[in-house]
Amino acid sequence: MEIFAQQLVNGLVLGSIYALVALGYTMVYGILGLINFAHGDITMIGALVSLTAVQLLAAAGVPAPVVLVLAGGAAMVVCVALGVSIERVAYRPLRHAPRLAPLITAIGISILLQYSAALIWGKQYIAMPEIVEPTRIVIAGAQLTSLQATIFLLACAIMAGLLWFLKASRMGRAMRATEQNPAVAGLMGVNTNKVIAFTFVLGSAIGAIAGLMVVLYYGLGHYFMGFMLGLKAFTAAVLGGIGNVAGAVLGGLLLGVIESLASGYIGDLTGGVLGSNYRDIFAFLVLVLVLVLKPSGLMGQHSGDRA
């Protein structure tokens, strides 16, 4: 039981990071019908920018909470600028092109970002200075560090805030309108270009925070770290029903928990034939099952077929 609780905690924290990144995928997909494959790498840039900021600031003797806020801020500024310019330069000109064109462009941007990061930060693992001393909390026999708790709570707050924002604010309403039908939304006086750009602002800013969380959580960063993270987050978005914001949250948390439980129990379940290095089989098996039974994902209402 104690172990199960611990695995659940592990999975929820990991899942909340997946969910944050998945939000970026799902919002852009909802509005543009575009799978923004560069989003995982925007998160990576956010991670590395915040890592560098922490290194510089911690060396200068700035107190830890200030360091974190500044590092997160720096990462958000860089990621938002990057996200908006990618949209402006790479995706907007292709908005009415056949849907394969922006997809391939997104993959191209993803590779471009990875190798730019490799040029700037090098191709080695970069160590994150330990700036927060982890204090341990015990809940139902599960060890929880203060960092894990902060990551989870902050992620939940961001997700709740986003849901509220989409529902209650003027911009949120404009975003939902654009999602339903950009042409009609335009006729109703919604500046769709602005709305789409804002979607990228939101997604990238949330991605930047997820990036900071990842480097804090694992203590290292790497130019290729966005690839697997992006893939998992994308899977989470599809699992929850791509285009649906609440679905991305659910999908992310679920994927994290499945992964964690699978690594914990796969060896016992298969009698030692499969080790925990095969845990992704479980995550993707669940994805396949969900898609077979409910092709639009757990919370998806309609499968978007707009380009």
Binding site: I3, N10, G264
Partner: peptide, 14 residues
């Protein structure tokens, strides 16, 4: 390639 070992370690902890 992995950096998350919490699940394995949790099992080992038991």
């Amino acid at each position: 390639k992995d950096t998350d070992f919490r699940a394995i370690l949790t099992k080992i902890k038991g």
